[in-house]
Design a protein around this nucleic acid. Structure first.
Lengths: 177, 177
DNA sequence: TAACCCATGTAACCTGTTACATGATTAA
DNA sequence: TTAATCATGTAACAGGTTACATGGGTTA
């Protein structure tokens, strides 16, 4: 039930079209809850049908028309109810760790290459998050409540990526020697 | 396609019954790839059908009989092929972060309570991992290749949980002041 | 003129969750 | 005698992925 709530959370910030959401789910919100455009369009129709979202058709010239979705009062209430319901600690799922767990069945250099490739991607993520975090931390005392919460989630991303990078260095040492 | 590979990886270590696997997927392997017993039984039958696993019926007295599954040569080859295929960096999915992202719509103390509750659980996880890690680090130079790889995955868990705990303290500061 | 961006969707399939179902043994 | 552990499954449903489909406008 969480994609619908992630969508409500993103739309609370401001209204989006499906296309916009799909892109955002590749960025800020997407770093802790990813979804493909197919899933998003499906979910948006459902949420409109059950009356948690309003849709407004926007005609554009030179571009295809789009539907702007926004959260209505029922949607806000549904989101609040969900947030107030305690949730379990989520299990992590990580293919790379599965591979490493049985890593002794393949030549070591294949895994080392793979690890280094992941290292670079996590490094890039961390750089992105840190650049964005600077904008928040520079005027920490002028942040709105909403911004404080968004900054808090960004901090999670920074901690996560930093831990990953530290782990990669650990693993390289462990496997090389 | 990864549950099947996680099962192959766990069975490479040594043969298991479905029941054993289900428990293990609540522990060591399970910290980076969780699965319920229903999923595991379903997957084991499939893997046996396509010929990647062998099953042996073990009669027990005083207890129900069980099927011991082990990886055969095709299974080992399939696992190797999969490990050698590069994989994408996996997206994290975290309900708590979704909640925090829209946390401004509920009273702050509700979220603080939730965060503290999660904190305690992560603390427990970290303690478990660290206790297990000690067994490995104490005789680091006598570890088999397989054990080194397993220790590497455990280190990931330790980094992950440590980062989480540090983040929680960050968030509490950010939200309280 | 080829590739990419904007914008929306359908269909088939695979994966994961929840609920139900059985039945013997063992420990409190 | 109640609950937990061992042991295996089925069925229905929800959630997620992959492939397919369309079509105008913009940039290289």
């Amino acid at each position: 039930m969480a994609l619908s709530h992630a969508i409500l959370a993103a739309l609370m910030d401001r209204p989006h079209s499906g296309y916009d959401l799909a892109k955002r789910f590749d960025g800020s919100v997407g770093f802790f809850w990813h979804a493909s455009h197919q899933q998003i369009y499906r979910e948006l129709s459902k949420l409109e049908q059950v009356g948690l979202l309003n849709a407004e058709c926007i005609e554009q010239d030179g571009r295809p028309n789009k539907k702007l979705y926004s959260v209505n009062e029922s949607g806000r209430q549904a989101l609040q109810d969900w947030i107030e319901t305690p949730s379990k600690v989520m299990a992590l799922k990580d293919e790379l760790l599965v591979k490493l767990f049985a890593g002794y069945v393949v030549p070591k250099d294949i895994l080392l290459k793979e690890i280094k490739h992941h290292y670079r991607q996590h490094r890039t993520h961390l750089d992105t998050y840190q650049a964005e975090a600077q904008l928040y931390s520079q005027n920490l005392h002028q942040l709105s409540e909403a911004q404080k919460f968004q900054y808090a989630t960004l901090r999670a991303g920074i901690h996560y990526e930093t831990a990953r990078l530290a782990w990669f260095e650990d693993v390289l040492k462990l496997l090389i020697y």
